[in-house]
Amino acid sequence: MSAMDLFKIFISAALVDNIILARYIGLCPYIGMSSNVANSLGMGMAVTFVMVLASIATWALWNFIFVPLGLEYLQIMVFILVIAVLVQLLEAILKKTVPNLYQAMGIYLPLITTNCAILAVTFFGVDYNYNLLQVVVYSIGVALGFTIALLLLAGIREKLRFSKVPQFYQGYPIVFISTCLLAIAFMGFKGLVK
């Protein structure tokens, strides 16, 4: 496994197959948490943290316990429970040990349990038959792509406040139209990784 392959996985996870703009996963926090740049940065950090930890935890469980025991059909239930437990643990640990970080991303943590992006990444990690290193690189890439998309939209929305939007396009409609344009821009990355 060369560094080049890892780099390819990283780039295609972050840009080419951007989890929001190309795969439509994780739209709820994307729409909900993008009203300003500070919020979206906090959410992005929290997602990155949980996504990497969750991928490692589910990858280990899957390869060392579920596949050997032939319990693949419990995948959905176990993965979602692992994420839920992880989020609870993380919240408790951060509160005690790193209060500053908890201040910055604490309020976003409970929202993450039902974030489909996290669950999807854990599924893809085992689907693609990645090894541990690849899973880590992949999940960091996806999380970065998520944060980029969130930040871009937040930037647009902050500017939109000063623009004249037709009355019935105000609110969500114009957000989706902006997303449409962002998605077109991201299509330019297709074919980047071979």
Binding site: A22, Y24, Y172, P173, I174, T179, A183
Partner: peptide, 19 residues
């Protein structure tokens, strides 16, 4: 067929509903 079209359509639908 591609992602942008989906985003565009749902935007238009919500705008119509608002209207």
């Amino acid at each position: 067929i591609l992602p942008p079209g989906a985003f565009l359509l749902i935007g238009i639908y919500i705008a119509l509903l608002n209207h």
